Structures are given as structure tokens and as C-alpha cells.
Simulated assay, not measured.
Amino acid sequence: MKTILITAFAFFVGCVTHNDSQFKKVEHFPLEKRVKLDSFKVKSDLFFVSDMAILDDKLVTLDTKNDVFFQFFDLPKLEYIGSQIHKGDGPTEEVLIFPFIENVGDKAFAYRTIDKIKIVSYDLVNRKLFLLKSYAVPQELEILNYCLLNNSLCGYDMFKKAEKEFVKYDFSTHKIKNFGPSLPSVSFAVSDDKKNMLFTKVMVSKADGTRFAALYDKFPLLRIYDNNGELVSETEYLNRQQAPIGYTNKNMSISDIKSTTINYMRVKATQKYIYGLYSGKTHKDLADLGIDGTSCCYEIHIWDWNGNPVARLMLDKNVTCFAVSQDDSCIVLYSSLNENTLYKMNIPLF
């Protein structure tokens, strides 16, 4: 039996009608650098940090396995300041928080509960979170990965057929509509009911709300859109992985999963750049190395908002999640392999 091997050169065959200049294939970044991370033991319990954000000169971590969701640290030395929002059903508690947070400006961040999106800032004087805005999210909007885009929530439902790549919920009009271009077109057959599962992604919006971006976990692909959902650029990183054709099978096998390459797992953005946390390993690679899949990323890829590659930072630690300062000066990282430890690096000049 012949082994089917489709490399990154043959994945994408054009997506929508746009100029060819909007579609790029990249093998190398202008700057490729190995980075040694500085390690900081913190005086607090970090059980499993699923995401984090830098707010001016403070770091906030979201811990999904702790009794308290948010912990705050002072930069640059990552000294522990305090914690906020315990798990529970009390008036100042939250039963569940989704495992992602995102920056809103320089000093605020957004998080999602079962039925709300909340935007908060940290009051350093009173050592507490201050609620800036709260938006109800309808139950029929079954999306996990999303980003805030001006006065709306933009995301996708991985288990539903999609007319367009995204759905958008407007907080003012309370209307849900299909949004964005069609999904990427690949060189192998994919049924409509499997497309959203095949093209799972992480999303982020530009600080000024004019654009948003998606990075994909099964493909080495970056797509950038304007705030009307029009595709601005599409950039493919040529990593020569095997195509994830197993996800098109009616009954996906264990070997299909093991052979799938993990690409981008987290994304952050500033006004200038998009930062993607990248693995490039298959599930089998990780198992052979004895590495936990929650800390499977070794690189950060940096792109500008036109889809041009800027830098590839190769890390000396396995990383779970990270945060970027809005002035593009530093990155803070966390690995689930090392409890109560945070890592930090200065961003090299591009």
C-alpha cells in the first residue's frame, strides 16, 4: 500500500477571489534566533495557567485548576501582587471561566464565563478587579475560540457546517450573522460538516480594531481580515508536514491523530505585530519524547499585520501559554511542566 504524503507545498489551492500578492508561502523568517528564557520562581501557587496577559506593567494569569482564577504579578521582576475571583457561585465568584483571556487596550482584559463576556481592569490601590463592561452571550452561540472585534464577538462553531468562516454576534443589535470569507481551500476532499473541525484556530484582534487574525492548529497558516470580514492576506509557513487527511475520515483512527502535526496553539497581538505560539511536532513526536501535550510549543512566530514574516524565536523551554507587552518589548511565558515558575524574555529588535 502506498503511503499518502501531502506536504505543505500542496495544501492550499486558493481560497477566494483576491490578488495573488495576498497569498504568500514562507520557508524562512528574516530573523531566526535561539532564545534562552529567564526563569522566575513565584511566591504563589500556579497549578495550570491556561492563558495570560500583560497590562501595562502588570502580568495577569488565568489558572483553571486553582481555587482562584486570576493572579497578578509586577513587572519586570514578576513579584506576586495578589489574586482575584475565586471559584464558586457567590456574588463575587465565578463558576467557570473559559481558558482564554485577551487584552483590551493597555490596562484591561476580557474573559468569558458561561453566559457573559466581561471586560475588567486591575485597581492596584484597592487590589481588586474593576468591571468596565459586561455583555450577555446567547446560549445558541456555541463557540469556544473567539476574539472581540469592536462591539462584537467573532468566532466559529467547530461542530457545525459553515456558510462562511466565522459567526459574529453584535452586542448592540443582539444579532448573530455569518461573517468573513469562505474557509481555506485545500487539495484534498473535505465534507462540509468536517470543515470547521479541520480548520480549528486561535484568533486575535488588532489593538485599534481595524483587523483581526487567525492561526490554525492543523495547518501552518496565518489569515488576516479587515473588520468587515474581508480577507486581507493569507500566509503559509512551509514546514513540510503531512496533510491532516485523517480528519476527513468518517471514523478517524488513533494513527490519524498521532500523525497530525500541531501548529499554532496560542496567539497574541499588538498594534504592530501578531505573535503565534508554535509547536511543529506531531502527537507521536511528543509521545516519543515523553512530553505533555499541554506544553508542546517550542517557538514563537512573529508577523506584521500584512502577513509578512518578521521573526522566528526558538525557545529553550516547552511552553503552554504566553503574553506580550503592548509596546513589543517583552514576552512572559508559562510551562505546565514547571509549577510556580514563570519565564521572561526581551523581544529582540527587528
Rank of each mutant, 00 (worst) to 15 (best):
Q22M: 14
H283N: 15
L62T: 07
M158C: 03
A136T: 06
R223Q: 15
T282A: 02
I81W: 02
D208S: 11
T3N: 15
I117Y: 05
Q242P: 09
D327W: 13
A207R: 08
E142M: 06
N263E: 15
F166L: 07
I119T: 04
N145W: 08
K272C: 03
M197A: 14
M252C: 05
K41M: 09
D292R: 06
S233W: 03
H283E: 15
G276L: 04
V16K: 11
Y334C: 08
E339T: 01
L31I: 15
V68H: 14
Y343G: 01
V42E: 13
S172F: 10
K87D: 12
F109K: 01
V104A: 05
L148C: 05
V60T: 02
Y275K: 06
Y146P: 04
I245K: 12
E94G: 01
K33M: 04
K195T: 04
I4C: 07
L37N: 09
S329N: 11
V332P: 04
G246C: 05
L286E: 01
K258S: 07
C297K: 06
T260I: 03
N178A: 09
L289N: 07
C297P: 01
I97W: 08
I85C: 05
N19K: 12
H86P: 00
T294I: 06
F130W: 05
M265H: 06
M314G: 02
G209W: 11
V68C: 14
H301P: 01
G209F: 07
L5V: 14
I117F: 07
F199T: 06
T64Y: 00
A8V: 00
N249Q: 13
I291T: 10
F48M: 12
G82F: 07
I6P: 05
S50I: 01
T282K: 00
V190W: 11
V68W: 13
N308E: 15
K65N: 13
N150L: 08
E230I: 03
W305V: 01
A10Y: 13
F350N: 14
A214H: 06
K43C: 00
T200H: 05
N151A: 09
L198N: 08
K218V: 03
R211Q: 15
R112A: 06
F70K: 08
T17C: 09
P30V: 04
T3S: 14
G280S: 02
V125F: 10
I119K: 01
L129C: 00
T260P: 02
Y334L: 03
L342Y: 07
A311W: 01
K25E: 10
N151K: 13
T210D: 07
M52L: 14
L313S: 10
G155T: 00
W303C: 05
K58G: 01
I291C: 07
K87S: 12
F179I: 03
